[in-house]
Design a protein around this nucleic acid. Structure first.
Length: 535
DNA sequence: TTCGAGTTGAATGT
DNA sequence: ACATTCAACTCGAA
């Protein structure tokens, strides 16, 4: 008996899964001599080093359980194998008599390295490797090639190149395998027929009491139901404009399909196609603000991340402006735990930790606060916290968005700073969101709940929450911190320009440098438009 | 080399 | 609800 293996990593779905379909079709060509083994590899050794909080472990567990169910529909099942991927596959290639292994291509450096190892081992064992791209809408190698070998650094340039690319149509789930075909049991299964079962929460080291409210269950079926429910809201889909959605509504103002896209429970190509079907022939919003535009943002970040070294770091990252961030362990912990003394910021951070999802604009507010706005702490620290708590934590998007918000890449208007007081007021005058997630402030009236330090001591006592005792004092005074940090950003940008000019043009013009310095420190209302060029 | 555009700023006007 | 001002960034098209 021969075995065809499909290796699930991301892409935890049976719909629009070309690598899975390829494996199934191979088995269907020769069903009497070949069996299908769809596997997921769980590495207990790596679990300690991964930044995954309880909520995301639960999401993964549920996604695997549903994947197993959905594979049973095509008369297969999921085999969860415990161990290190390279070791496990080297062993199984032999024990299972594997002829072909298929998987979905992934850009993350960890995956690229691991997959390279596996490919080499497969070659040694004479196993065919079939790799399909299906995690994003576009083929980014094609986009990079059309952009003269470089990643696009703006959305619009990505969009214009993407418009010239073909999109593969999403595939249906694979055909069913014949029922009751001869299968085989390996020696582990003979010893323990449950050895490949989907892990329980406790096997993943998670107790249900560690998890927050169960708002977003994992899995492909859940993903498709959620998508279709949103697609029925034609007006919502057609008028959707991301910047106009609320970061602090009590029920999400956006679809919350991101965790499903992250794990590949939902195909981005399918969602993209369905969105276009709903908006076709109707007046509708456009990228970048539309819903389809949101999916293109995802592709944008995947594309640049796929070809940028050290994309998740500042140092050695060619797209990232070098900024001399400070360190402050106390401030970082206060931010992480929602104890900054700014109710809007703290409410967001507590929602994140409890529920694993916060609105995109809420992410903006807290990310700006941690980095260039208030605390002057590196975006890499914030990225780690998001990586742990977010259900949708996605390597490329997380790093890309942190660079955006800290004005380290893609976004350069560092003088536009979110106010931790007024930004949230626009969409939640009453402060209902704050009252939910920072309940110690629940008796504060609308006018003052965004800045409770303004209440007199007597009022604070009356409201049952004294600032500095029952709720923390502000870590920094925003209006002061913002000005100091903006100056630091200005200097960092200037230095970055110098470095850039130095690497491309070795000859340095000293006089011009002096001019720039003077201009940047003195305020000139209307500098003369025409500057005499020195040669 | 120049210049317009950039998903989502805040404060202060009308 | 929308316009203006604030002070000023980089990318990429022209």
């Amino acid at each position: 008996m021969k075995t065809v293996v499909h290796w699930f990593r991301k892409g935890l779905r049976i719909h629009d899964n070309p690598a899975l379909r390829h494996a199934v079709d191979l088995v269907l060509e020769n069903p009497n001599e070949t069996v299908l083994r769809p596997i997921f590899i769980l590495d207990p050794g790596i679990r300690e080093t991964l930044l995954v909080g309880p909520n995301r472990w639960r999401f993964l567990q549920e996604s695997l359980a549903e994947l197993d169910e959905n594979l049973k529909i095509i008369n297969s099942r999921l085999y969860v194998v415990r161990g290190n991927a390279v070791d496990v596959l080297a062993r199984l290639f032999k024990e299972w008599n594997v002829t072909t292994i298929t998987w979905e291509y992934d850009i993350e450096p960890f995956s690229v390295k691991r997959d390279g190892h596996v490919e080499k081992i497969a070659h040694d064992f004479g196993v065919n490797v079939v790799i399909e791209k299906s995690h994003t809408i576009y083929d980014h190698e094609e986009i990079i090639k059309k952009n003269r070998g470089k990643p696009t650094l703006t959305y619009n340039s990505f969009l214009s190149i993407a418009a010239t690319c073909e999109i593969s149509p999403p595939l249906d789930p694979p055909n069913k395998l014949p029922k009751g075909i001869s299968t085989f049991m390996d020696k582990d299964e003979k010893r323990d027929s449950h050895c490949y079962d989907v892990p329980s929460l406790s096997e993943l080291g998670v107790s249900p009491t560690d998890c927050g409210p169960h708002k977003f269950p994992g899995g492909e079926t859940e993903a498709l139901l959620r998508m279709e429910a949103h697609l029925e809201r034609t007006n919502y889909i057609c008028t959707f404009e991301k910047p106009n959605t609320s970061p602090n509504s009590l029920e999400p103002s956006t679809t919350v399909l991101s965790p499903y896209l992250k794990f590949g429970c939902l195909s981005s190509r399918l969602f993209f196609k369905r969105l276009n079907e709903v908006t076709a022939g109707k007046k509708h919003s456009q990228p970048p603000v539309s819903l389809a535009g949101q999916l293109i943002w995802r592709d944008f970040y995947y594309c640049v991340a796929s070809c940028t070294p050290n994309f998740d770091k500042m140092k050695g990252n060619p797209v990232c402006i070098q900024i001399p961030w400070g360190t402050n362990e106390q401030h970082l912990e206060a931010w992480r735990n929602g104890q900054t003394g700014y109710p809007f910021i703290d409410a967001i951070m507590r929602q994140l930790k409890q529920e694993g999802w916060i609105h995109h604009l809420a992410r903006h507010a807290v990310a700006c606060f941690l980095t260039r706005g208030d605390l002057w702490i590196s975006w890499e620290e914030g990225k780690k916290v998001f990586e742990e708590y977010l259900l949708d934590a996605d390597w490329a998007l997380n790093a890309g968005n942190w660079m955006w918000l800290s004005a380290s890449a893609f976004y350069y208007q560092y003088y536009r700073v979110y106010s931790p007081i007024s930004f949230g007021k626009k969409t939640d005058k009453e402060g209902k969101y704050i009252k939910k997630y920072v309940p110690e402030l629940k008796n504060y009236p609308a006018g003052i709940i965004f800045e409770p330090w303004k209440a007199s001591k007597a009022e604070q006592k009356k409201y049952g929450c004294v600032i500095g005792e029952d709720y923390p004092e502000r870590l920094v005074i925003h209006d002061d911190a913002k000005d100091i940090n903006m100056e630091k950003m200005k200097k960092a940008y200037a230095k970055n320009r110098e470095t850039k000019a130095g690497t491309s043009k070795p000859v340095k013009e000293e006089n011009d440098d002096e001019d720039t310095k003077r201009k940047s420190t003195t305020k000139i209302k209307s500098p003369p438009k025409k500057v005499v060029k020195k040669k």
